[in-house]
Design a protein around this nucleic acid. Sequence first.
DNA 1: CGACTTTGACCTGCGC
DNA 2: GCGCAGGTCAAAGTCG
Length: 576
Amino acid sequence: METKPERHHRHDHVHEEESQAGEEDDAIMEHGGALSLLHRGATLFGQRRHDEEAVAGRRGEIREVDFFSRDSGARRQDDGGGWRRLPGGGRDDVNIGLDLLTTATAATANAGEELAAAKNHKMEASAVEAELRRVVDENRRLRGMLEELTRSYGTLYQQLLQVTQHHPHQHQHPDLMSNRSSLPHTHPNTIGAPNTSTRQLLEARTSSTAQTQTDAGVDDEASDGAGEASPSGNNDSDGKRKMSQDGAAPARENGEQASSAELPGRKARVSVRARSEAPMISDGCQWRKYGQKMAKGNPCPRAYYRCTMAVACPVRKQVQRCAEDKSILVTTYEGHHNHPLPPAATTMANTTSAAAAMLLSGPATSRDGALLGHPAAALFYHHHHAATTIPYASTMATLSASAPFPTITLDLTQPPAAGAGLLGHGGLLQRPAPVGTMIHHHPAAAAMPFPVPSPPAMFLPQRAAAAAAAGMPQVARQQQQAVMETVTAAIAADPNFTTALAAAISSVMAGAAGGGGAHQAQTSAAPTPRGSNAGGAGEGNGGSAGAAAPAAAPPATAAAGGSPRFATQSCTTSTT
DNA sequence: CGACTTTGACCTGCGC
DNA sequence: GCGCAGGTCAAAGTCG
């Protein structure tokens, strides 16, 4: 027990480093343009230095010529040491002309040749000077652009922070969604990692007992350093968690506590309903069961799992079979991973994050479940008062406003439509669905178990969302078609169905969001530490593939555990 | 032996 | 204040 934490700590550190590195990478990616400019600028600056020196030298005479002389390269190597010529740096005769101006030997040269040489030099000099000016100007211009970009980025980032900070507040403006519709600016974060808002939202709950989170909290804080990268962080400082005392999820003594404090008692959850005989659906993460309870009103026990991919990972999930239909497995996710995730897990995490964000993004966040009236809500939310009473066949994404926690339920149990499924896989590939549910309105969504519509809703301009609501205009259809094709192609190309699907959806999302992410799926299934199974889940699913899946799951399907698994993963994927 | 699961006990929040 | 339900802890057991 003693060593465990240590080991985990080391692990964490590794993760931290990785995440930090990742962050940097991300930053680089995000600022790719700026950085490239920067590099360019740096280069130019470097050159500019030379240029300026050259200019200065010109005034003083000599250096400019020398700078651009043929063996300037050799001389540059000696920049630090002055302008001493390197032995063998070039033919002396070639440099003679240049040196004529700088050495006493010039005086001894033939007057006529000197004149001619001087003229040539003047011409060259003027040409070089012009070139130099041009370069300097360009350099200034680029530098200005860089500064401008940097400024813009800073401004945007600030705006993002402001927006995300406001999300937790339930007093959102009706047009919040429209604000979100501007997400394309921010979604890169969403893809790469749970965006700030999502994190805040998911971590929005704090235990009223603001006990002294001493070291643990501090450490975690530090570990979170990767900070933005490692979301919710903190978490329960491993092993040391004084859970009970803290109350549920207490331990989220993370940096976002502030925001959490703003929403005491609120914590978004994403519930995924999928058909599976397996004890757990595979989501690419490694989980450890830490408890089981009989829940009221359900003969099936509820299992509690904690993410073990990182000691301090605050992510938890509950798995319970549906009381009405025991073939349906309900998995509820809560929190954000504070560590690097394997592709599959990443997609899942992002999916849940996105779903949660979607859940809380609109008026829906209001405690009373005032979803109605929200344009987006009308598309894919169902307002109901019993989280468990979702008639799964009627809706894909459901919001439970009355639940203790704002919970969005992704229903992946819909039966396959005859000949409708793109891939012919179980219930995931929806038939042209019932009007009114967002997912059904969106063909692309139809191909994705997860309410893909969410992405559009979240990332597309409000107009687009409205259009979707209006019944899918031509453009939208085309887009959907593209999505379908992408998915089909990806699946066809990759034997690993799940991976392929993830890749396809990621690419789709990347395309729609304008950010990467597609690459995530390239590497296949979860490289989880304990390879045997992506956490118990994997085992359960994979292993029970055959037994699982009720009717609908085709044999060949990679969807272990039948469609459910597929569903889940895709679900995840789709949101990323 | 380490990691994971099981399971009873404990803690906390909430409604009455 | 009490009881209930949800959630978590942690010792004991299991497994590879």
